[in-house]
C-alpha cells in the first residue's frame, strides 16, 4: 500500500483513489465479489436440490477414510486436516504480505514458498480424496452411497460434490500458479524495482478468498 494519497482528495470526481486503495486492488475486490456469486450460486443450487430430496447420503458415512488407515472409520478427520492446511497457508500468505510492507524480500520469498507448499499439500489431499472416492465407485453420474433412510441415492450428491470441490480445487490450482509467478518476481527483485509489493497483496486477496470459499464448502458438504 504505497499509494501516496495526495492531501486534497477528490473522492467522487474522478480523483485518484476514491476508496483509498489502488485500482488493481479495487478490481480484485470486484472480481472476488463476482466469484463469490458464482460459488454462492453453486452452493445454493446444491442446497436447493438437497432440500428437494426426501433423503440424502450421510457425509459421515461417505467421508470417513484417512490415508494409510485402512478401513478405520474416521469421519471428518481428513477434511479437518485439509481445512487446517488451507488456514495455515492463509496465515503464511498474510505473513508474506506483511513482510512486503516491510520491504523484506527474503521474508516475502520465505512465506510465499510456504504458502505454495500449503497449496500443493491441499491439492494433494484433494487428489487423494477424489481418487479414493473414485475407487469406491463415486464419480459424476455414479453414486454408490445410500441415503440415510436406506434408499438408493440419486447422482445429485456426487455430481454436486465433484463439481463444487472441483471448481474450488481449480481456484486453488490457479492460486498456486499465481503464487509461483509472484515468487519468481520477488526473487528477481521486480517488486523492489517497482518500489512496492502490492502484487503480493492482490494475489493474497485471491488466496484468502479461496480459503473463505473452503470454509463454506467444508460446512455445506461435511458438517451439515
Amino acid at each position: 500500500m504505497d499509494t501516496a494519497v495526495t492531501a486534497k482528495k477528490k473522492w467522487w470526481a474522478g480523483g485518484y483513489s476514491p476508496f483509498n486503495v489502488s485500482y488493481g486492488k479495487l478490481m480484485m475486490w470486484y472480481f472476488l465479489m463476482s466469484d463469490a456469486f458464482t460459488f454462492g450460486a453453486l452452493l445454493i443450487a446444491y442446497g436447493t436440490i438437497r432440500f428437494s430430496s426426501t433423503s440424502w447420503p450421510d457425509p459421515n458415512e461417505v467421508f470417513k477414510s484417512f490415508p494409510g488407515m485402512g478401513h478405520a472409520e474416521l469421519p471428518l478427520m481428513f477434511v479437518s486436516l485439509m481445512t487446517f492446511i488451507l488456514i495455515m497457508s492463509s496465515v503464511t500468505m498474510v505473513l508474506a504480505v506483511h513482510a512486503g510492507h516491510m520491504r523484506d524480500r527474503k521474508a516475502v520469498a520465505k512465506w510465499l514458498m510456504w504458502t505454495i507448499v500449503g497449496g500443493i499439500a491441499f491439492l494433494s489431499c484433494q487428489a487423494w480424496e477424489w481418487t479414493h472416492l473414485f475407487h469406491e465407485g463415486a464419480w459424476w453420474g455414479r453414486n454408490p452411497f445410500h441415503n440415510v433412510d436406506g434408499t438408493a441415492a440419486s447422482t445429485n450428491f456426487t455430481n454436486f460434490f465433484f463439481t463444487i470441490t472441483g471448481f474450488h480445487g481449480l481456484h486453488v490450482t490457479s492460486g498456486v500458479v499465481l503464487n509461483i509467478v509472484i515468487l519468481a518476481n520477488v526473487l528477481k527483485g521486480t517488486y523492489d524495482q517497482r518500489g512496492h509489493y502490492e502484487m503480493v497483496e492482490k494475489v493474497g486477496l485471491y488466496w484468502h478468498f479461496v480459503d473463505l470459499v473452503w470454509v463454506f464448502v467444508f460446512t455445506c458438504f461435511y458438517l451439515l
Binding site: V21, S90, V94, H208, L212, F216, T219
Partner: peptide, 25 residues
C-alpha cells in the same frame, strides 16, 4: 452455520484486511 459466518468474518476482516479499509469500500 453461525460459526461458519464467524470464520468468514475473521478471514475477510483480518486476512483480507477489509475491516481496515474505508467504509465506502
Amino acid at each position: 452455520i453461525g460459526l461458519t459466518l464467524v470464520k468468514a468474518f475473521y478471514i475477510v476482516a483480518e486476512f483480507m484486511h477489509l475491516g481496515h479499509e474505508i467504509k465506502n469500500l
